[in-house]
């Protein structure tokens, strides 16, 4: 048994990592458990899937919070006056704005706008500061409330979030992180702090903390067939390769590319789910899901209207000059049987 109670699961697409979180949480009814994740979409999915497994309700021992709700309400707000010197100063979160670059860290305007809303880039930093000033009260309070905290899609956490993770690792709370650096798409903030630990760099960050967190890779995909796994793996040669557990053969399996002219016929034949780069993408009038939103979902087949750089990469497989590996990884790995690109 390690002396700590912290686990980081680095898992490939389709390895059922969210499922793992839900089952673990449901399996500890005598503990107070928090599940937190960054995106609303993922939060909604987690709640839905818990309800499906538990009589249509979320059991009383489980709390599901968005990452910023957790940061603002449970980390930054309770002891805010250690920094602001005024209880009840903080109003809400300023998700859009950023502080003026030259603001000194001693001033309130370093963290707060004029409505007393806290800037999103500073919430974790503020929470860690307050924890420091109060001699650890922020963490002590969390310890009193929760026995175990699960963080899903941990690759979205960046900058000062990592400092907060460090404090959590050192607490009595069991911390389980699950995520996949290959699916890094929507970071929680845009602070430049710890830039080197973004994306794949997160693995280095975990590696440096081997003494307080057990790292567990999951390389099996229940979703994608081996061809799709291999295509996706090729985007990240430094990551362990993925083993497919999906051996079902349908007659149209793997990675394909079709010209625009064939889209209608292809859709009629295979009835794929349509993914697009963004809302401005021309999808020949077909209803489509943004790649960003599709994260976490499983479809039998996908037809992808990608950015033009993806088509270039598809043709030349030149990783050096390809910038959006994460988006392509996510798009391709949604599919169980076939992922097809529209040229």
């Amino acid at each position: 048994m390690p002396s700590h109670n912290n686990l980081a699961i680095i898992a490939a697409a389709g390895s059922r990592k969210t499922e793992y979180v839900i089952d673990k949480a449901l399996g500890m009814p005598d503990k107070n458990v928090l599940i937190t994740t960054y995106t609303n979409e993922n939060q909604r999915q987690i709640i839905e899937r818990i309800q499906a497994k538990s009589n249509g309700t979320v059991p009383a021992h489980i709390t599901v919070l968005g990452w910023f709700t957790f940061l603002v309400n449970e980390c930054a707000r309770p002891y805010q006056n250690a920094f602001t010197l005024k209880p009840g100063y903080m109003k809400s979160l300023n998700f859009i704005g950023e502080r003026y670059r030259l603001t000194s860290k001693n001033s309130l305007s370093y963290f707060f706008d004029k409505n007393r809303d806290i800037y999103r880039n500073g919430v974790s930093d503020f929470a860690c500061d307050v924890n420091q000033i109060t001699g650890g009260k922020v963490i002590a309070r969390l310890e009193q409330i929760w026995d175990h905290i699960f963080i899903d899609e941990v690759q979205d956490l960046v900058g000062f979030d990592l400092d907060l993770l460090d404090r959590l690792f050192d607490s009595t709370i069991g911390i389980t992180l699950v995520g996949d650096p290959r699916q890094y798409m929507v970071p929680t903030n845009t602070a430049s702090k710890y830039k080197k630990y973004k994306k794949e760099g997160l693995l280095d960050w975990f590696e440096e903390r081997k003494a307080k967190v057990t790292i567990e890779p999951r390389v099996q995909s229940h979703r994608c067939n081996q061809t799709i796994c291999d295509f996706a793996d090729a985007l990240f040669p430094n990551m362990p390769s993925t083993e497919s557990l999906n051996t079902e053969v349908t007659g149209h399996d793997g990675i394909f590319i079709i010209p625009r002219a064939d889209v209608a016929a292809y859709v009629a034949t295979y009835k794929p789910t349509i993914l697009r780069e963004n809302k401005n993408t021309d999808t020949e009038g077909l209803a489509a899901i943004n790649i960003g939103v599709s994260k976490g979902s499983t479809y039998d087949r996908v037809l992808i209207f990608p950015a033009s750089t993806v088509i270039q990469y598809y043709k030349n497989r030149d990783l050096e000059n390809f910038k959006s590996r994460e988006r392509l990884y996510v798009a391709a790995t949604r599919a169980r049987f076939s992922a097809t690109f529209v040229e």
């Binding site: 309770p78 002891y79 805010q80 006056n81 109060t134 309070r141 009193q144």
Partner: peptide, 29 residues
């Protein structure tokens, strides 16, 4: 006690760490 953590913090009239509830009526912005 062990179950009052959610109400813990220093947002009270003393500004010190404590468990409790408050009702407050103030000028709305």
């Amino acid at each position: 006690n062990g179950e009052t953590g959610l109400l813990k913090g220093s947002n009270n009239l003393t500004g010190n760490d404590a468990v409790g509830v408050r009702i407050k009526a103030s000028m709305s912005s």
